[in-house]
Write a protein that binds this DNA or RNA. Structure first.
Length: 271
DNA sequence: ATGTCCACCTGCTGGC
DNA sequence: TGCCAGCAGGTGGACA
């Protein structure tokens, strides 16, 4: 699940547990996830007080009063479990606060990551260096898309998944935004007329806001001991809905595979 | 530079 | 019941 709305929901769920709290301990139950943990992470985090919770694209940011920021990525299967009754084999990191609350970073596929960077150098964190604008921020809109898509021949779906174009979209919300905008996923990015780029940018914002709102309405259930969710999947327009009617025109939704990833789309009204 | 594909890892489901 | 293929929300890197 972890695209931008899920990370945003996660961060909002972590905030009341962590904000203002001292980190009593952090246990690294293995040496790495996707990459090795910084060797001094435990020493630098233990005893620090959490000052801020934030998000950049699909990364969660936990700032401390030692001018360090913990940066986590949930990969494909990552989630935080709150106050788990038992620590399982995929609970790779366990944080205990000064109130005795426990948070376990669980990620069975281990595509996620946990890093620690100096807060003032956060813009230099390699994944952030060339990253595009936040899709819900003021820098993202039709004008931005027109600028960065000019001359590009790759399919618009692939370009929207490129975090350098816009940061935070994944397979689900790209499929849904393209459906809402009525744009075919295979259309060349540079061959979309400017008015349609305005429509597309609005569609991206709209599907993300709806997903965050759905997550927010179930926030108490999101970061929880048993982890998994499922409440927003009923809101998907086309993703995971092969064979069901298109919400725009009723035509049967199709699925195809592009470079190993499923694309769901309406063959009639997405052009 | 741009476009395309694959590996990384584990677990689950469906077909035989 | 067991086995195996196929599938899964992301990303960096290796190619042409």
């Amino acid at each position: 699940m972890p695209e931008l709305p899920e990370v945003e929901t996660t961060v909002r769920g972590l905030a009341p547990i962590l904000e203002g709290r001292r980190i009593e301990s952090i246990e690294l139950r293995r040496a790495d996830l996707r990459w090795p943990f910084p060797p001094d992470l435990r020493q630098r985090v233990t005893g620090a007080r959490v000052t801020t919770l934030g998000r950049r694209a699909k990364y969660g940011l936990i700032g401390t009063d030692r001018d360090d920021t913990l940066i986590f990525h949930l990969g494909m299967s990552g989630h935080w479990r709150t106050d788990p009754t038992e620590i399982g084999k995929h609970d790779h990191v366990v944080i205990v606060t000064d109130e005795g609350r426990r948070l376990a970073l669980n990620d069975h596929r281990r595509f996620g990551s946990l890093d620690l960077v100096r807060t003032e150098a956060i813009a230099d964190y390699p994944p952030f260096r060339a990253m595009g604008p936040e899709p819900l921020g003021p820098a993202f809109g039709g004008a931005h898309l027109a600028r960065v898509l000019e001359g590009r021949s790759a399919p618009i779906k692939a370009l929207l998944l490129d975090q350098k174009i816009v940061a935070g979209l994944g397979n689900i919300y790209v499929c849904d935004a393209l459906n809402l905008a009525g744009i075919a996923p295979g259309r060349a990015g540079g061959h979309i007329a400017r008015p349609r780029l305005d429509v597309l940018a609005d569609a991206v914002k709209s599907v993300l806001k709806a997903a965050i709102a759905a997550g927010g309405s179930s926030l108490r259930d999101y970061v929880r001991p048993d982890g998994e969710l499922g409440y927003f999947s009923k809101e998907w327009r086309v993703y995971g809905r092969e064979g069901l009617p298109c919400p725009r025109c009723g035509t049967v939704i199709r699925r195809r595979v592009d470079s190993g990833r499923s694309t769901f789309y309406c063959p009639k009204c997405q052009r």
